[in-house]
Design a protein around this nucleic acid. Structure first.
Lengths: 342, 342
DNA sequence: TAATTTTCTTTACGCGCGTAAATTTAAATC
DNA sequence: GATTTAAATTTACGCGCGTAAAGAAAATTA
């Protein structure tokens, strides 16, 4: 592979002995040219390392081969994992994923969608901020670009939503906790997205169904610093003796991680069985939940299934170009992960 | 702001009443046109929401306004934080950051650099995989694109390296640990990058300087799953009674988090003072280190300083277009963060 | 071998913008 | 108000590619 000085497709075509339009055809779909021509092009390609100029390619196309991936908060390993899965699948399908994080900020999310628009992406996978999202901006964007929402739903926005069935998962863990000890109270997360409310409702409903009194520990805090919220609010709640039960179900794992730290600092042993003062459970199976002290009992969302379905739904949308397809909602069931904390 | 059907700069120029070349000039640098014209353009901009086609813009440029940001492993919140800081600064400077994660894989890093090349970025900020990097591929890339390495150094590659002074930081914490209790042994991380070796050397040298015998706990494990390594290797080491001292300095926080989990499971209380069986310290001030149980004593790398200097160095390189500038190495000092674990 | 189908070549145009040169217009200086 | 200087306009070309149309060449079928 010589370090080539090929400037454009014209020159490359000349070298490979194939006409430029045919070479162009090859790059758009290698299978669209005869095998013998394909071989000649690929031979030249090995020797000269030419790649078409992406900017020139996309200038005339209505859409590019890129796919926007937007998550609300990338410093959260949960979303980092999601993004990783999605990236893989996109690449495997011949697309080019471009990752963005809204960093929890409304304006940044708007700006990202705005930039994305000018990238003419084939489609977008969006985990919106949620409550902090500018609904109208997102709506408008989804009108122009095939978009699949995941993780956090904005009712009616986008061509599809893929997420977890919070009612199922919360039901699972509440039932488990009730069965194995005191019924849990519910440690709320800041209401950044619909999941916050859905999980609280699911908790209340399940408790009522089981004939127990629900008890929600409300937090005033805002933003995405969940560990800090769990920690500081947790210390307060413990100090004030406001815990109505020895079992706490946290709205998500990061909150639980903070709460574990608070409990530790307050000298309360967390775990199940005699000798333990508190049971703490989370939700999401955060990548680090296995390594907390004690390890965290939680609900594992089906990362793989959610991302796979999201991406495949998007591909379907792209192919069928269905402007007026009906919006689809797909919820996956999660599974209980029993560890040491509850 | 009407939903406009403006197709190109020509049309927009007509509407704004300014000639197209001048409008083009405006978009390249608003300050380069007279205030009165700027106002007219911006007025039209408010009313018609036109944006130049990025693909057409970049087709003729030698470089684009985008800046590649490549980290080895985005599921590590340490890198997520780094990326976040970098993104901010790039945007503030009018550039367009594009984030990539190598996910710990050699081939992916190569592919990313390859794609990046065709994006004609103004510059690249690269935290290389390290040992797993294809040195020649990275070298070649750096030859074509102004690149600043950060976090992990590849000697001689790129126009600059910005990172932490491991000798200083390890010195700090070793000294602290020796002063306040038993001299530490050193729990190695998988040798994914030069930091692994540098930190081990720094540990050994500091111990010798202080007149203590160094003791390194070697791990066979590979890859970026540090928590798992710390956890499983930690359990083994504890079970086998291979701990030469009650104080363990981990090569990084994620390792320490795993080790904390192992210690907890083995019933060893971690902390300083009477009644504690083990002291554990880390390195990096991982975003979650504050919330481990007990909270982790560690070394805080100066995120802000490192990212700021990296970005500014890159901007300098871009501006001066210094093909043959001398390679610069800048190391920042870190600070000791005393928490409960040691 | 002739007829048909597929694939390739030739030729040509356009995409939306950057940018250079020559000219005109407006602002700043005296 | 005349002169200098700065900024806009007009005109024109080119970037690297997609793509359409018409005809030539190759592969396939009869």
């Amino acid at each position: 592979m010589q370090d080539s000085k090929i400037r454009n497709m014209e020159e490359f075509a000349a070298i490979s002995g194939i006409s430029r339009p045919t070479v162009s055809k090859y790059f758009n779909d290698p299978a669209s040219v005869r095998k013998s021509t394909r071989d000649r092009i690929e031979k030249a390609l090995e020797e000269h390392n030419y790649r078409p100029n992406i900017y020139a390619i996309n200038q005339n196309r209505r859409t590019s081969k890129s796919i926007g991936v937007v998550v609300p908060y990338l410093a959260d390993p949960f979303f980092a994992e999601m993004a990783r899965h999605i990236e893989r699948r996109c690449i495997a399908a011949g697309f080019w994923p471009i990752l963005f994080s809204s960093h929890g900020e409304t304006q940044l999310e708007i700006d990202i969608l705005d930039s994305l628009l000018s990238l003419k992406p084939a489609g977008v996978l969006l985990a919106p901020l949620g409550r902090a999202s500018d609904r109208r901006a997102v709506e408008k964007f989804c009108h122009d670009v095939p978009t699949v929402l995941f993780d956090s739903n904005l009712e009616g926005v986008g061509k599809a939503f893929v997420g977890s069935n919070n009612f199922h998962s919360i039901g699972l863990i509440v039932e488990y906790l009730c069965r194995t000890g005191e019924p849990p109270c519910f440690f709320e997360m800041p209401p950044v997205n619909p999941n916050a409310n859905t999980r609280r409702h699911a908790y209340i409903r399940t408790m009522e169904a089981l004939g127990h009194k629900a008890h929600v520990i409300h937090v005033e805090a805002q933003g995405w610093g969940f560990e800090e919220v769990g920690y500081s609010e947790g210390k307060k709640v413990i100090s004030d003796g406001r815990l109505p039960t020895d079992t706490i179900l946290c709205s998500n794992d990061r909150l639980a991680i903070g709460l574990l730290a608070a409990a530790y600092e307050k000298g309360m042993r967390v775990g199940r069985g005699p000798g333990f003062a508190l049971r703490i459970a989370g939700h999401d199976d955060h990548p680090f939940s296995k390594f907390t002290s004690p390890s965290l009992t939680t609900i594992a969302q089906d990362y793989a299934a959610i991302t796979e379905y999201s991406v495949e739904t998007l591909f379907r949308l792209i192919e069928t170009d269905s402007k007026n397809a009906e919006r689809e909602t797909k919820l996956f069931e999660s599974r209980l992960v029993m560890r040491a904390s509850a």
